[in-house]
Design a binder for these strands. Structure first.
Length: 566
RNA sequence: UGGGGAAUAGUGUAACGGUAGCACGACUGACUCUGAAUCAGUUAGUCCAGGUUCAAAUCCUGGUUCCCCAGCCA
């Protein structure tokens, strides 16, 4: 029936949720959560997880998705990250109602659960340091051995744990560990650490705590406290699920189920907070929101729409095996959305002056242009036309090769919404560079149609020299030169694959005057060029546009082919 | 070499014993006042080897390859 299989296909996690509803496993409840650690900015990979978790909640009656910060490691976490994460998820269009939670709000409760485990003989204070714990843990193929502190009395454990909390011991000197099995084939089960001593100030709890729960201990409890039903995380946590289950079973408390899916990988891109942080800290990009970054804030500044990102996430699927999405798919979705929604304007990136010799000096006409052919409601606007214009340098060739349809000596083309013009003369400077074209126009073609029905091979965009506005335009290319940035020479790292030409700034661009009062983050299509977005740094004195993505450009491909075959 | 996962066109993703489909990409062509969009078409796939069955991507057996785990990160 449906041509698009996406409309009736559900991924394996949604299938589980649907089955649980059918069998009434959770009394019909659907509660998910998105649990970022506030130690970096959100990126397109997080968007996949956000759309999954919030999407599942939204698709099911009464479904809820909590936004919960997993802030259990004060050393890496900062308020600025909390703020950006909230902003980004809102911008993507998701809503968590009043359910903004923090793991740190549960610290007291977690502590009491830990005491409960000690009393049950299932946790103990260990005096081994980090090195020693590693040595005692064994290896992938050899079992570990028990800590000498494993069999302390409950009283001693309670007392030591209490003193850990009270700040009596230095960082790293003791831990609280679960008493499981030092010979377990899953290393996560070899008496994992539940609490470590960290005399560090926390963005939210300040200096109240000097012991902090580890991820494995904390995460299940967070899910438990919030009565989550489906705890969705990425594949690398699959090995942790037995521990997630062990803690909740040992406590005998409400027990959500954890499901794992593959994280997003994308060509020409790194999606690891660690690597993105490196780029920011090394100054290799201009901050987390640099338009070349795959962060949500970077994509926003680049000109991506929430709709484009959500459509992309909908189409990439959810699975249990690693895959790398072609960045062309992301670009496809942004073109698809922007084609429908963005206003068209004319802008000339690399201006070439054109003088219409037979057009009266001083005359100005206001010609009508369509704002968005995909949306009749967008209306029309007036664009000024005069004797001196700019066209794109790339739209003229003195000695045109085959398949070049644009302007050339003696050739007639259309100026969009204006007139047919014919090139009569080429003016060059002392270096032989083309600096000006002299053309004639046909007054009968006003508006762009020839009454005699004659055709031209191409239509060019243009601006009036006198009326156009100066602008700066930033052209972006992939941040990395290799599909897989981690494919590096011995001894090098991903940064060696950075694309030195990922940003090209054009400072002598001209845009039509209707753009005079445009606002930051407004999105446009520059006709025949691509989609562009007003940069937040833009001002009335200096208009700045970021190229989101170019239009599909068959001519560019033909040209590359012609260059190659030379 | 312990344990846990996973393999379908170039890429991504469906088909849950019954015609291997869709999207992106690539390539044709039509249309076009954006070489865009739109429309029509072409291209190309079940990791391997056995087995069960009228029928296998799907079930069974045995291989192969890839990913994750030895943080007091998440």
């Amino acid at each position: 029936m449906s041509k698009n299989n996406l409309t009736n296909h559900i991924d394996f996690i949604r299938a589980i949720v649907a089955e649980d509803i059918r069998t009434n496993k959770w009394d019909g409840r659907v509660v998910t959560r998105f649990p970022p650690e506030p130690n970096g900015y959100l990126h397109i990979g997080h968007a996949k997880s956000i759309c999954l978790n919030f999407g599942i909640a939204a698709e099911n009656p009464g479904g809820q998705c909590n936004l919960r910060f997993d802030d259990t490691n004060p050393i890496k976490e900062e308020q600025q990250y909390i703020d950006s994460i909230i902003e980004d998820i809102k911008w993507l269009g998701w809503d968590w109602g009043d359910r903004l939670y923090f793991a740190s709000d549960y610290f007291e409760q977690m502590y009491e659960y830990a005491v409960q485990l000690i009393k049950a003989g299932k946790a103990y204070v260990c005096d081994l340091n980090a090195d020693e714990i590693r040595q005692y843990r064994g290896t992938l193929t050899e079992p570990g051995k028990d800590s000498p502190y494993r069999n302390r009395s409950t009283e001693e454990n309670l007392d030591l744990f209490e003193r850990m909390k009270a700040g009596k011991f230095p960082d790293g000197s003791r831990t609280l560990r679960a008493k499981i099995d030092m010979a377990h084939p899953n290393l996560n089960m070899r008496d994992p650490v539940m609490y470590r001593i960290l005399h560090a100030s926390h963005p939210r709890t300040g200096d109240k705590w000097c012991i902090y729960p580890t991820y494995d201990w904390a995460h299940g409890l967070e899910d438990c406290i919030e009565k989550v039903t489906h705890s969705i995380c990425t594949l690398e946590f699959e090995n942790h699920r037995p521990l997630y289950d062990w803690y909740l079973d040992a406590l005998g408390v409400y027990h959500p189920r954890q499901y794992e899916f593959a994280r997003l990988n994308m060509t020409y891109t790194v999606l690891s907070k660690r690597k993105l942080l490196q780029l920011v800290q090394a100054g290799l990009v201009n901050g987390w929101d640099d338009p070349r970054m795959p962060t949500i804030s970077g994509l926003r500044r680049r000109g991506y729409s929430p709709t484009a990102i959500r459509n992309f996430c909908k189409h990439i699927g959810v699975n249990k095996f690693n895959s790398t999405i072609d960045i062309a798919l992301l670009e496809h979705h942004v073109r698809q959305d922007l084609n429908k929604t963005s206003l068209r304007v004319m802008a000339v990136l690399k201006p070439l002056k054109v003088v219409i010799d037979n057009y009266p000096k001083g005359k100005v006409e206001q010609l009508e242009a369509v704002n968005n052919p995909e949306d009749p409601n967008a209306g029309t606007r007036k664009v000024p036309f005069s004797r001196e214009l700019y066209i794109e340098q790339d739209d003229f060739m003195e000695d045109p090769p085959k398949k070049f349809y644009r302007l050339a000596p003696g050739r007639e083309v259309r100026l969009r919404y204006a007139y047919f013009i014919t090139c009569k003369d080429v003016v060059k400077n002392a270096d032989g560079e083309i600096v000006e074209l002299h053309c004639t126009y046909d007054p009968a073609t006003r508006g762009g149609d020839a009454p005699d029905g004659r055709k031209v091979k191409s239509t060019l965009h243009w601006v009036s020299a006198e009326h156009s506005l100066k602008a700066q335009v930033r052209l972006y290319d992939h941040l990395f030169t290799k599909e897989n940035p981690d494919d590096v020479e011995e001894g090098a790292d991903f940064k060696s694959n950075l694309n030195p030409n990922s940003l090209e700034t054009l400072r002598d661009c001209r845009v039509e005057p209707s753009l005079a009062n445009t606002k930051p983050l407004s999105r446009y299509q520059f006709e025949r060029l691509g989609y562009f977005c007003v940069d937040p740094d833009s001002s009335e004195e200096t208009l700045i546009f970021n190229r989101t993505v170019s239009l599909r450009d068959p001519w560019a491909k033909i040209q590359r082919g012609q260059v190659r075959s030379r």
